[in-house]
Design a protein around this nucleic acid. Sequence first.
RNA 1: GGUGGGGUUCCCGAGUGGCCAAAGGGAUCAGACUGUAAAUCUGACGCGCGAGCUUCGGUGGUUCGAAUCCACCCCCCACCA
Length: 432
Amino acid sequence: MTDKTLLQDLSARGLIAQMTSEEELEQHLAEGSVTLYCGFDPTADSLHIGSLVPLLALKRFQQAGHKPLALVGGATGLIGDPSFKAQERKLNDDSTVAGWVEKLKGQVSQFIDFDCGANSAEVVNNLDWTRGMDILTFLRDVGKHFSVNQMIAKESVKQRIDREGEGISFTEFTYMILQSYDYQQLNASHGCTLQIGGSDQWGNITGGTELTRRMNGNKAFGLTLPLITKSDGTKFGKTESGTIWLSPAKTSPYAFYQFWLQTNDADVYNFLRYFTFLSIEAIDALEKADAEREGRPEAQSVLAREVTRLVHGEEGLVAAMRITDALFSGNLSDLSEADFEQLQLDGLPSSSLAGIDLVETPLTTLLSDAGLAASGKQIKDALQRNAVIVNGAEKGMDDNMKAAEVFAAANGTYGRFFLVKLGKKKHHLFVI
RNA sequence: GGUGGGGUUCCCGAGUGGCCAAAGGGAUCAGACUGUAAAUCUGACGCGCGAGCUUCGGUGGUUCGAAUCCACCCCCCACCA
């Protein structure tokens, strides 16, 4: 951030949804290093790309000289945030949540610097200050500051209260109080004066700024980041095969890279602003260049490279690009035997044919079991349209019962590799 | 505890004795067109290559035949207490 302030840059990127007292916050950030926090609740064993915007925001603040605290919700994760959720959620048991907390700590830590002097990041866990609290203290010291009338009026729980057919338990209703208490605690212990989060967190954040003012007598700020939406109205971060996770064990760097590469033209420049550290000027220039050029825009590949590097490092990016080049360039013949082995290691979905009775097993079963499609019906559909390609050769329904022939060693590359393509985008490597 | 309304295939939501594997929409998948885009059009969409098999909260029952009728049970919601 050279000539612009942090808030101006965030605003230019479209990364600010709401703020408490904008002018005062601008001034507060200008006065020196501010300690801020953002919470991540353990609802699975990995974060997904929905958490990327706040994670990168913490990093943006740190780069601007502020001190980020990443809060992992060991306590709040046991309760479940009702904000804008249509339904009550199932409770996870505490050993599960504790396990997830550990995983999230590691993930969160990738993005922020823990060793850069005064504004080094810290990871905190709200279970630390909630676990020992007894219910009477909670009700008298904390609960007394909250008005149920106000809590009910919050937009975030409105659909649970108004909507026919749904309700909200006291447990989830209390979530807001717990999160507010976190802020108050961090304000007292770390001098934290800013909380950031997704726009769905606005109600919880303002709850915290008020509690901090009431209990600590301190001014505290809040800032929310926009919910990422797609131009076609579908949900961001989900694909046919599920959520895009940050953990390479759950979403391979290759799949991750592909996800970004497939971004719509209508979204890609926004995503560059949200998910990368490229300057606004550079992004604008790219947009202009793409518009002037005929054909395929450059932006998707820039986005895919930048984000994959941020999440999976240079190594993950190289692996992802290696697979992509091999699969989509069309010249598989250039690949050496060692390259095929590397592709498996790099995360190209693959499976072994060892032990499978190829004479008895139809391709529909074989390919759906391998995960190329959800059911044999879909494979059948693809076969009927000649959308199944094995080592470059189209296969049809006639080949369905001829798996032994299709996957005969003599037909394999180097006598044992079969690259199966279903449709334009799905690839799977079979190995004898 | 009382009264009323509900639980249908991934989601929403029709369906009140056979014509129901179950309308319609959404999501998803494949094809055409393209740029591994969007939009549009076509097809698929419980499972099975197929013959066929298994579903409509659960368990029993009535019936030649039930998602639809009966009994009991479970769960959800609203209002009242």
